[in-house]
């Protein structure tokens, strides 16, 4: 099966998802060509197991992200089944490559089987769709859903100089706002309750939040007693939240708190009391003191 992987780059190197894309292609029985937009990390891509060839597409157009220009520059190198990462850049470039070639695109696959049968979550994970594609197509893959290929390969690298017109000009960079995400819009929330002892200890939760781009929430007890902002409060009289991941630290799980977070997709509870009701709704419960568990969480997340 003819197959092309569009590599995801990150700064001057290859993003780890690229090895997962190659792994997925291999599982379909393909030995894909890897196209590296802009060329960064092409040598690294060549070392991924199962790659037949790396095409490093270089040109001025890669200095700015313009999916139209990028797709123009790489489309002619992409043939057969095209696989990219379901990252913001991957999705957009892949969409334009598909449209340029007049072939369908299926985004955010979590499983592939020869045929090609594609599984992907729809309705934000409330249902799963299985579909079959017979001809050429573009598929983007969810990060961490596929096993990465190894790194013992030694494919050749062809450099192609391909220019394309950029229609987007960066006028001004705005550095990351230091403002913390609001709990009502965050995809990951780490919340603290009375069990963490005192208001100052929220700084530990904030450090964890910074690593994974989470919002910091709080139970009503600490909002009332320690004067935390009401906007942080999760629960019956606070915000009702439905993030993908909710981490409750030192929260016993009063019914009013559960009312605000029990629809979260995954719940992690950290509490030293093994009988705390929060464990009743937790997918992963950790019976431990926050003083031990939170630093461990920080280092485990930082190591990802």
């Amino acid at each position: 099966m003819e197959c092309t992987v569009i590599a995801e780059t990150s700064g001057n190197s290859i993003h780890p998802i690229t090895a997962q894309l190659v792994g997925a292609a291999s599982s379909l029985g393909a030995t894909p060509i890897v196209v590296v937009p802009g060329g960064a990390g092409a040598e690294e891509a060549a070392s991924i197991d199962g790659v037949s060839k790396v095409i490093s597409v270089v040109g001025d157009c890669f200095s700015t992200f313009d999916s139209g220009a990028w797709a123009s520059a790489i489309a002619s190198q992409c043939s057969g089944v095209v696989i990219a990462g379901a990252t913001p850049i991957g999705r957009e470039v892949a969409s334009r490559v598909a449209a340029k070639k007049g072939i369908p695109i299926i985004q955010d696959a979590t499983d592939l089987a020869p045929g090609i049968t594609i599984t992907r979550p729809i309705y934000s994970g409330k249902a799963v769709e299985t579909s079959t594609v017979s001809g050429d197509c573009v598929i983007t893959l969810r990060a961490n859903a596929f096993d990465a290929a190894g790194s013992d390969g030694s494919a050749s690298v062809n450099v192609v100089d391909q220019s394309a017109d950029i229609s987007i000009a960066v006028k001004e960079a705005i550095s990351k706002a230091s403002e913390r995400l609001d709990v009502s819009e965050a995809d990951i929330i780490i919340s603290g309750g009375r069990g963490i002892g005192q208001k100052e200890n929220f700084s530990h939760l904030e450090e964890v939040a910074d690593i994974i781009g989470a919002a910091v929430g709080a139970s009503r007890a600490v909002v009332d007693e320690w004067g935390m902002p009401h906007s942080m409060q999760v629960g019956q009289t606070g915000k009702t939240v439905t993030p993908s991941l909710y981490i409750a630290v030192g929260i016993s799980g009063a019914i009013q708190h559960l009312a605000g977070m029990r629809s979260s997709k995954y719940i992690v509870a950290i509490n030293k009391d093994p009988d705390a009701p929060i464990f009743g709704v937790a997918d992963y419960g950790i019976v431990a003191t926050w003083e031990e568990a939170v630093p461990a969480l920080k280092s485990a997340l930082a190591a990802l």
Binding site: R220, G235, Q236, T237, Q256
Partner: peptide, 8 residues
């Protein structure tokens, strides 16, 4: 008892 609270 929760019914008397202004949480509801």
């Amino acid at each position: 008892a929760n019914g008397i609270l202004d949480e509801y």
